[in-house]
Every structure is written in structure tokens, then in C-alpha cells.
């Protein structure tokens, strides 16, 4: 199945693209997607912390909702999903 991934703000530069399509096996999760996307140490460090957990600073949306409203990083993907990966912005 194919999903579309969109990177935002500083992550566009880290991943070198603004969006890409990714081919994944049926039943793949957000975690599987991130493992596929993070093909360099720099990409990996921007998404995962030292213990391999998703950084709390990264917000991931599956279509119109954050992955926390599904199963977090274990959220199952479906054909045609649009996944948005956003770095944190909190300053005023």
C-alpha cells in the first residue's frame, strides 16, 4: 500500500523533501513508516530520542487528526493516508 508523507518547517530540510510517497506492507504502522523514512542518522535523530522512542517534540498527524487520537506510534496505516510530520513550535 502507498501512503503520502509531508514534512513541515525544519523537517523539510532534514529529510531533503517536502513530500514523498512510501510503499509499505499491508498493516504497517506509523513506527514502520518512520523506520523506512529515517534512512540516515540525522533523520533518525530528528525523530527518535536516544532510547529509540518518538521524540515528544514531534507532532504526527494521520490525515486530519494527531496519532495520539489513534494508537500513537502503533497506529495502523491505510492506503492513501496522508501523514504530516511537524516539528514543535511553542514560542511566542
Amino acid at each position: 500500500m502507498k501512503v503520502k508523507v509531508k514534512f513541515f518547517a525544519a523537517l523539510k530540510e532534514v529529510f531533503g523533501v517536502e513530500e514523498r510517497e512510501v510503499e509499505l506492507g499491508k498493516g504497517a504502522s506509523i513506527k514502520d513508516l518512520l523506520d523506512t523514512l529515517c534512512d540516515s542518522p540525522r533523520c533518525r535523530q530528528s525523530v527518535f530520542d536516544d532510547s529509540g522512542k518518538l521524540k515528544m517534540r514531534i507532532q504526527i498527524m494521520k490525515n486530519r487528526l494527531p496519532i495520539q487520537s489513534f494508537d500513537g506510534i502503533s497506529t495502523r496505516l491505510e492506503e492513501g493516508d496522508v501523514i504530516s510530520i511537524i516539528p514543535p513550535m511553542f514560542a511566542g
Binding site: 513541515f8 523539510k12 498527524m61 486530519r64 487528526l65 494527531p66
Partner: peptide, 17 residues
């Protein structure tokens, strides 16, 4: 989402959870 380095505005559609 405003990207001042690339001078681009992107949008993410949202919905009520």
C-alpha cells in the same frame, strides 16, 4: 505553517477529535 527560510506557506487540514 510558515517556512520563512523557503518563504513557503503550507497547510494541514484538521478536524475536531
Amino acid at each position: 505553517i510558515w517556512d520563512g527560510l523557503k518563504v513557503e506557506m503550507d497547510e494541514i487540514p484538521l478536524e475536531k477529535n
